[in-house]
Design a protein around this nucleic acid. Sequence first.
RNA 1: GCGCCGCUAGCUCAAUUGGCAGAGCAACUGACUCUUAAUCAGUAGGUUCCCGGUUCGAUUCCGGGGCGGCGUACCA
Length: 493
Amino acid sequence: MAGRSHVEEARRATLERLRERGIDPFAYRYERTHTTAQALAGFDPDTAGTVRLAGRLVALRGHGKTTFAHLEDGAGRMQLYFRRDEVGDEAYELVKLLDLGDVIGIEGDVFRTRTGEITVRARAVTLLTKALRPLPLGKSDAAGDVHGGLADPETRYRQRYADLAVHPDVREVFRVRARAISYVRAFLDERGFLEVETPVLQPLYGGAMARPFTTHHNSLDRNLYLRIATELYLKRCVVGGLERVYEIGKDFRNEGIDRLHNPEFTMLEVYQAYADYTDMMALTEEMVAGVVQHVTGGVRIERFGRLLDFSPPWPRRSYLELVHEHAGVDLRTADDDALRAPLRTRGVEALDALPRTKLVDEIFKEFVEPTLQDPSFVVDFPIEVSPLAKPKRGDPILAERFEFFVFGRELANAFSELNDPDDQRRRFAAQVAARAAGDDEAQRMDEDFVRALEYGMPPTGGMGLGIDRLIMVLAKQTSIRDVILFPMLRAET
RNA sequence: GCGCCGCUAGCUCAAUUGGCAGAGCAACUGACUCUUAAUCAGUAGGUUCCCGGUUCGAUUCCGGGGCGGCGUACCA
């Protein structure tokens, strides 16, 4: 590997010196008795005990025959104090060869320094892993401000290992993520939902409006798609008698990348037989409020300067009313030109080419979505933009469908699932026609799915929740990249 | 896709009108037995993202390209 920096050359020289002393720079294991947090919490000045800690050196201050350091592990950080006369000449020589970023094990007694910091007075030190590349560790001053460190966003995403290694708060985001997902699983498991896994590689994609990734299976010699949703397979499960199912997994959509979109993202989909969309509203409220409570300790939380109240029930606003209120258009009576008029005032381009469904969608996005800042449901969508949802009882131009919004962003989408196979076939046919007219996100005819419905799917409520976007709210992140460990980037040059 | 901004030492950042490319931290040598952005003395470290152009001379100006951020469009 060419282009080694002089810092790396120095580390490799140190590596050789360690080996000459018979020290293995890449040890096999270490028996630790405490984490730093346990050692700090358990400190008692009268019964100062011995601890064995392991972690990464994140600060190092040599003073001749003494050395201070900070060790960071998965639980926190703790100061170390080495004295030549206490660890011995040989061990102290090793201490002098330690670098920032090295992983070490330390054994010693816990005490409090003159300046008051609880510290381990080292008796023995073990090198566990030599860091051959310098970590961009910043220095924190008394005010807590970090000097130096790793700031370049490109390096942070490309080398997430370095980002994580130097930023405990980044590690915390992914702990929040794990806690949230684990809560969702427990919540659904307790209510009798069965977690299932359905195909990622699909002969036909469906269940959402999006362009897919295409791949090829060599021995079958056929093209396959990466799924854009789990919906159609999960409903096949319900047909088969798995009455309550859910899946948490990656969907893949071949679209642009921005702070709200990553080409692969995590979606929860839940289906419950004998339920409708009102049941799914109750489920969504209870589950999301539970996650928020579990992760943050409360259901009323402040995020980005706004107080969000997740305690059920959430406000429910009708799609038609919202459009009328914010765009001044009555979708029941307005013709296409009446839909274009308000859009023109907002400078939306290329309206003439758009079919009515897109105009409606555009009005909702432009005029209504930005107003949906607090947690709320939008209910009863136009049926022509809801090809997998049942008609609304008593008002068949609408579908029994809702979306859940926070900060003007859709986090969840749910329906009373369409289970009339003939109607489903007609809806697919309309999608196929839209595709023929140029809508490359329209759905495909899925004859196998219609066949499944012909066997009879019980009345079913279904809901999909964008996990990454929920995590953004919980973990106070403004970019989806910051809640995905390894977000999609262009090739490194 | 499009628009704006950025890319300089391992890291964080400077560099006047186009005039020898600098600092702090990290590194190296030395001093230092309660320090904490440790301190002190000294040393070394550069394809200024890449390609081309203008110029006596380009980190700087111009053109093209790469990567990233933000905004916008599509989408969850």
